[in-house]
Design a protein around this nucleic acid. Structure first.
Length: 137
DNA sequence: ATTCTAACA
DNA sequence: TGTTAGTA
C-alpha cells in the first residue's frame, strides 16, 4: 500500500491549506497546538501539510461548525501520530467503518452532553448545538 | 512575499 | 478567534 506514503507526504505550506480549508492560519495553528493535526516542518520550521492533514482539518472544520469544541473533537476523532498513520493499513472497508463509528460517537456524544449536563464537567458542545434538539431558529 | 511565535488597546 | 509585532 504505497498510496499512504503519498497521502502522508508533506507538501503544502499553511497558505495553501488556508485556501483549501477556508480556515484561518490562527485556527490551523491552534488545532495543531491541541494535537488535532501534526504537520511536518521544514528545516526552517515552517509547517508542511499532507493530504491527510488537510482532510483532517476539513473534518475538524465540519465538527466545529456542528458546535463541537476541541475537547469534543479530541474524543470523536481518531488520534494522529506519525507512527500509527504510517503503520495502520486503511482499506476502503476500515475507512468507511471509521467514519460510521465517528458519526455514531458524535451523535452519542451530543445526546450524552445534552442529557447528563452535570455541573462541574465542562461542556464539549459550544452552545449553539442545542438548537438541533431544542428550540428551533 | 510568507510564515512563525507570542501576546493583547 | 482576531490581530499585530518583530523575526527567520
Amino acid at each position: 500500500m504505497g498510496d499512504e506514503i503519498r497521502r502522508n507526504m508533506a507538501l503544502f505550506p499553511i497558505g495553501i491549506v488556508m485556501k483549501l480549508t477556508d480556515l484561518t492560519a490562527r485556527q490551523i495553528r491552534y488545532y495543531e497546538q491541541h494535537g488535532l493535526v501534526m504537520p511536518a516542518r521544514t528545516s526552517g520550521n515552517q509547517r508542511l501539510f499532507s493530504f491527510n492533514d488537510v482532510e483532517r482539518l476539513l473534518e475538524i472544520k465540519s465538527l466545529i461548525e456542528k458546535g463541537v469544541n476541541i475537547a469534543g473533537i479530541k474524543q470523536v476523532m481518531n488520534p494522529v501520530s506519525k507512527e500509527s498513520e504510517e503503520a495502520t493499513v486503511i482499506t476502503p472497508q476500515t475507512e468507511s467503518k471509521r467514519r460510521e463509528l465517528t458519526d455514531l460517537q458524535l451523535h452519542r456524544l451530543l445526546k450524552q452532553q445534552l442529557l447528563e449536563r452535570r455541573p462541574g464537567r465542562t461542556s464539549l458542545i459550544q452552545g449553539q448545538l442545542s438548537r438541533f434538539y431544542n428550540n428551533k431558529p
